[in-house]
Design a protein around this nucleic acid. Structure first.
Lengths: 165, 165
RNA sequence: UGACACCCCUUUAU
DNA sequence: ATAAAGGGGTGTCA
C-alpha cells in the first residue's frame, strides 16, 4: 500500500489539509482525490486572513463540494489530520446545530459564544446531511501517508499563491 | 531563595501565583519580590491537597508573611493574576468578616454557608488589617509580565516539590 | 449569564 | 523551543 488506507476498491479516498502562517495571516487549503491508489483529481486555494483550524475545515468543505459536483452519491472517505475538523464533523456538528451553532458548556472556557467559523460549519453540515455516503476520518499527519503529504504540499502552494495576486 | 537588603527607597513589588494539579490534588504557591525592577527575594512551597483558588490566596498570604518578617511597614504592592484573590482581599474581605466569614443567602431562608478556605482568609485579613502599607492589585496572567511569569514558574516548582519529600 | 485562574488533550505554524 | 487555533474538566465571585 503506497497511498491511502486499505480497502480502496470502490469509491474515493480524499485527503485534505490546511495550513496557516501566523506572520502574514495567510492560509491555504487543499484536497487530493484517489481512486484505487491513483490520484484522479486535486484542488487547492489560498485565503488572505484565516486561522489554522478554519483552513482545515475549509479543506473538508472544498472536498465535499468537489464530490457533490463530480461524483455525487458515490461512497467517499475524506481523510483529515485535524482532530478539530474530524471531531467537528462527526461528533460536535449535531450538537452545535442543536445549540444554534453556539457553545454551551457551563463552567467551560468559552461559554455560549458562537462557535468559530460558524458559516463554514453550517455549510459543511448542510452538505454532509445531504450526502450520507461521505465519511470523515482522521489520519496522522506528517507520518508518511502519501495522500496526506500530497495534500500538505498543495495546501502550502495554495497559501503561497496569495502573495502573487 | 535569594535575599537582599530591604529596599530603602520606596517599596516593593511582590508578584504571587498559585497552581494546582487536579489529578494529584497537589498545589504550589510562590512569591517574587522586586525592588526597582530587580528581584531581591522569592519563596515557594507545595501543598498536598488543595484547590487552585486556595493556592492563589496562600501565595498572597505567604507574601504578606515575608513582608511582615523582612520589611514591615514598607510600602508594598502584591500583584496577583487571580480576580478571586484580589477581590477577596479588597472587596469581600470586610463583608465576609462582617458576616462571620459566611456567605449570606439571597433568599434569607436556608443556612449561611462558610466561605471556602475561611482559615486562610481570616489569616490574610488579620495581617492586612495590621499592615495598611500593603496593597493588593491585579495583573493579567500569561501576558509576558516578567514577575508574573517568574512566580508562575516558581509555584510549579513548589508543586513538584511535593513528590520528592 | 459574565469574569478570573488552574489542570489535561489535539492540531497547526515558525 | 516558541506561539496559536481548538476540545474537555476544576475552583471561585457577582
Amino acid at each position: 500500500m503506497t497511498s491511502g488506507p486499505p480497502g480502496a476498491r470502490h469509491g474515493f479516498h480524499v485527503f485534505v489539509d490546511g495550513c496557516h502562517e501566523p506572520g502574514s495571516g495567510h492560509g491555504g487549503w487543499a484536497f487530493v482525490v484517489y481512486r484505487d491508489d491513483t490520484e484522479v483529481a486535486s484542488g487547492f486555494g489560498g485565503v488572505e486572513r484565516s486561522t489554522n483550524n478554519a483552513m482545515e475545515v475549509t479543506a473538508v468543505l472544498e472536498a465535499i463540494l468537489w464530490i457533490e459536483n463530480t461524483a455525487a452519491g458515490e461512497p467517499a472517505v475524506i481523510w483529515s489530520d485535524s482532530v478539530y475538523a474530524v471531531d467537528g464533523c462527526n461528533h460536535w456538528r449535531p450538537i452545535w446545530k442543536n445549540n444554534g451553532w453556539k457553545k454551551s458548556n457551563p463552567g467551560g472556557r468559552g461559554r455560549n459564544r458562537p462557535i468559530p467559523d460558524a458559516d463554514i460549519w453550517k455549510d459543511v453540515d448542510t452538505r454532509l446531511s445531504g450526502n450520507p455516503s461521505i465519511a470523515i476520518a482522521w489520519c496522522k499527519g506528517h507520518s508518511g501517508i502519501a495522500g496526506n503529504e500530497r495534500a500538505d504540499a498543495l495546501a502550502d502552494q495554495g497559501r503561497r499563491s496569495i502573495r502573487r495576486t
